[in-house]
Design a binder for these strands. Structure first.
Lengths: 344, 344
DNA sequence: CTGAAAGCGCTTACAG
DNA sequence: CTGAAAGCGCTTACAG
């Protein structure tokens, strides 16, 4: 897993290997027009294969002072949390953070890679929601160390990954509701194809099991982490003949959707129904009532990712390719004993 | 206002001016120890005065492909909105965005400047909440073009600034409530030292005046844009003998604080009280009920800032040192006719 | 503590 | 379309 030192991947090295002169390679790099198509292709392949990166007059092992932080897109409500952590840790080592979103625009990734190559950086932190493994291999070709932050939890051991304990989080949220006296607890799932969704669901199951409760399949409704899906799930749950007295949503966004569904039905939180989320975005604190939720330490995950990047750069050992930080239940005002039990 | 081309601010130029050799300047730049203190100081001053920036083997006018985006800190709930816009526009011109927070840590700014100098960038977008004009002048010394995004609205003509129409926004929110039939409308102010707060307040005043309503000083309570201050303002307003039927808060955060104050008093939105915010953060859409608010086009402001930066770089004309983008009232579910008027 | 010399990585005319 | 030569911005030994 040690990075190829890439000491001598210079223009002239590439030129020698390609059997051309340095200026020709330079022309290819700078997109000048007048290079024979086949020469260009040969050189381009070589550049990729050898992981060429512009080094200007910098010394071989010198730091650039820049770390790439790559998102799929910047709509994710937790993006800032991660940015903050990454910026903070990077700042401590005198680096800046280049934030990019590679999105939908497919051409985008290509262009972005060209840009990364020309301006160089000391490493990349990828925030994946299925951020293409193709991107990862392309970056590998640039011989830039890569760490993946994975709030959605796809375990991939080919690359160091930072995540959080989704299962334990799901368990603690469920246990909290059970401890309050709830017996019918709804669950709104995350996107089923993501591992974190399964882990949270399994945590919910484990919580019920521990308490000797049966899982009622009607109470598990699918969501995709979005507000809207939470809203629809809420409508479905409270349209049931025997609705739950509490809902655990696998994201804060969905929990807020449940809030709105409850409000529209005239149900009060937590008097009539308790709600728990997952993430602890700032919004959780500012919702009305403030949301009880499972905190995912996104900023710490960002910090750890940067520190891991540094170890990779320095060729130090990485303890484990996958590190999970602890989640923590944050109890606020959206949970209370169920109405029936209140009279007990 | 045209930027000094800084064509020839090279190490050897500085060396010549300082009466030393190039290697000595290089040593100062790289923080090597063995330079006489007074030589070092002389060179450092010169570097600053001439705006030296490392250029490696890049050609004179060549782009670095990096834009700095500087926040005071990354807690501001609108930070991502701006990041998204800046990233988008930068991406379109093949640049990356280096996001930094200079915060409380005072040493920070110095170190950050050193880093900017060594890695270079094509320009800087500062997001100010009173981001020191000292920082701005330091950046000027680096001869990096600077544009200020100012969601809080300090007009400063020394530097190109992008803002939004705070006054018009305040007016439209107030008129909306009046049109619904409200006559007692509370206002929660922003931080009084910021211009945007005054502009929004004046928009509120103008709205009342247009409708021939008197301003009741009891209905104007101070806030500081934060959630907590909104909560306290809500408590104060609804502790009045004659409370308002609607509240216009100068930020979404404060509007959400008002939500919570109302919930705790058992008052319903919009049935009992209408609430309007300002900003249109994503949270506004996800609050319960979804918040009617004045949209501040933060992403567009970011995009415009980048485009202005490019014009500065290319020495093109800037139409105006201060551009204000239009705000827009977004009507959602937190506003309705007042309870009394409902029976009319 | 400082400079003359050599060298590195890259680009820019120029010539064919 | 390509290369030999010159040159630029910077750094690294080396010598004093």
């Amino acid at each position: 897993m040690a990075q190829t030192p890439s000491r001598s991947v210079t223009i002239s090295a590439i030129a020698a290997e390609a059997g051309v002169s340095a200026p020709t390679v330079s022309r290819v790099l700078n997109g000048r027009g007048d290079v024979a198509p086949e020469t260009r292709e040969r050189i381009e392949n070589l550049l990729r294969a050898r992981g060429y990166r512009r080094r200007g007059s910098r010394a071989a092992g010198e730091r650039v002072g820049l770390i790439d932080l790559v998102f799929n897109d910047l709509d994710s409500p937790w993006a800032v949390e991660i940015i903050r952590g990454v910026e903070d840790a990077a700042h401590d080592m005198g680096s800046s953070v280049a934030v990019s979103a590679v999105h939908r625009r497919a051409s985008s990734t290509r262009q972005w890679l060209a840009n990364v190559r020309s301006r160089a950086s000391d490493g990349a932190v990828l925030v994946t929601t299925g951020l293409g493994s193709d991107l990862r291999s392309e970056l590998e070709e640039l011989h830039i160390p890569v760490v993946v932050i994975d709030p959605v939890g796809l375990p991939d051991l080919a690359v160091p990954t930072v995540g959080c304990t989704n299962w334990a989080g799901g368990l603690s949220a469920t246990s909290h509701l059970i401890d309050l006296g709830h017996r019918r607890i709804g669950f709104v799932t995350g996107r089923p194809e993501l591992w974190c969704s399964r882990a949270r669901l399994d945590g919910y199951r484990a919580g019920l099991e521990t308490a000797g409760l049966d899982l009622d399949p009607d109470l598990v409704v699918p969501g995709n982490f979005d507000y809207e899906s939470g809203f629809r799930a809420g409508e479905q749950l409270f349209g049931l003949a025997e609705p739950p007295t509490a809902v655990f949503a696998a994201s804060d966004q969905m929990a807020l959707g449940v809030y709105e569904a409850l409000r529209q039905r005239g149900l009060r939180i937590p008097d009539d129904v308790s709600v728990v989320g997952f993430d602890d975005l700032p919004q959780a604190r500012w919702s009305s009532p403030p949301l009880t939720t499972v905190r995912q330490p996104l900023d710490d995950m960002g910090r750890l990712a940067v520190r891991t990047l540094r170890r990779l750069r320095d060729n130090e050992e990485i303890e484990s390719p996958r590190v999970e930080l602890a989640t923590e239940l944050i109890v606020r005002d959206s949970t209370a004993p169920p109405p029936a039990a209140a009279g007990d």
